[in-house]
């Protein structure tokens, strides 16, 4: 193998890892909320983009990237609380709430993309966050920016914590109990509405974080919202709605797919393939790969 191919291989590998971890993160955020509250958030891509843009603005105002990320996370939690209070909680007891919520979030998507077009869209068409850390590390013969290594570490770390928390933390256990059977959990004394709120907050915070990690690693434009929405939904459906493990595995697979496809064709081709994968899954195995 020549050096050039090696380099392409290495960059594909690192891109695949980072994209995969971010995809898995966002999809986990979507799938937790769907699995637990039965609410599919179609505007997850807009949430993702909002966080990235907000961090970009704060960085532009002179904040360091780390400070911007923490600031946006707090703002994101506040915003989620407001959305939960104004919109989401009205749907907790609606029987067909998944359709209603899907439609509501489609509306939210339109509102947010309208707002983005009227604001950030006028200011710039490419955005990026300044790196968290500078420098380059050689991993074997392959160079990788320290910034991307940190992004990857954060993404994988959050995923690991999430996974462990869902399994071992009492809140995580209650969350999973509600996943499995709302009535039974309620009978055992779990406060179902509180768990709903918690999982909505958790899910959106993860999506916000995913958006900012993406902005650290890559430059982006406003169309990333749509792409991310499609990707996250495809991962959720293929991995099995409600399955965090499914989100992890399929997210990684999609990340590598995207990295490889981008070498030969436009990234849209990757989006196209996610759409087809989701379609096939919906039609032939709606419960997904990782659900019993």
């Amino acid at each position: 193998m020549t050096d050039a191919t090696l380099l392409v291989l290495a960059s594909t590998l690192s891109t695949g890892l980072i994209l995969g971890a971010i995809f898995a993160l966002v999809a986990a955020g979507v799938t937790i909320v769907y699995g637990c509250v039965w609410l599919p958030n179609a505007s997850n891509g807009q949430f993702f983009l909002l966080a990235a843009l907000a961090a970009w603005s704060l960085a532009g105002a002179g904040w360091s990237s780390a400070a911007a990320i923490i600031g946006v996370l707090f703002m994101g939690i506040a915003l989620s609380l407001v959305i939960e209070w104004v919109l989401v909680r009205r749907l907790y007891d609606v029987p067909e709430r998944n359709v209603a919520y899907f439609v509501v979030t489609l509306g939210l998507t339109q509102i947010m993309s309208g707002i983005f077009a009227m604001s950030w869209g006028l200011w710039s068409d490419q955005f990026t966050l300044p790196p968290l850390v500078d420098g380059i590390t050689m991993i074997g013969p392959f160079p990788m920016t320290n910034n991307r290594i940190v992004v990857l570490a954060i993404a994988l770390g959050v995923l690991a914590v999430l996974f462990a928390a869902l399994r071992y933390h009492p809140y995580g256990r209650a969350l999973r109990a509600v996943f499995q059977n709302r009535e039974a959990a309620a009978l055992r004394g779990v406060n179902v509405r509180a768990i709903y709120r918690l999982s909505f907050l958790l899910g959106s915070s993860i999506i916000f974080l995913g958006g900012m990690l993406f902005a650290l690693a890559y430059s982006f434009d406003l169309t990333v919202a749509w792409t991310m929405s499609v990707t996250a939904f495809a991962i959720m459906i293929v991995g099995g709605p409600g399955s965090v493990l499914g989100a992890l595995v399929v997210g990684m697979v999609f990340g590598f797919t995207q990295a490889i496809v981008s070498i030969f064709a436009s990234p849209t081709a990757a989006t196209f393939s996610y759409l087809l994968a989701m379609l096939a899954m919906l039609l032939f195995r709606p419960s997904g790969l990782f659900n019993r």
């Binding site: 009205r90 509501v104 509306g107 939210l108 339109q110």
Partner: peptide, 18 residues
């Protein structure tokens, strides 16, 4: 005001549903 139109129809979608 294309972008404003998007916001308006988004708001209407939410109002109608909820």
């Amino acid at each position: 005001l294309q972008a404003f139109k998007d916001v308006l129809s988004g708001v209407l979608i939410i109002v109608v549903t909820l």
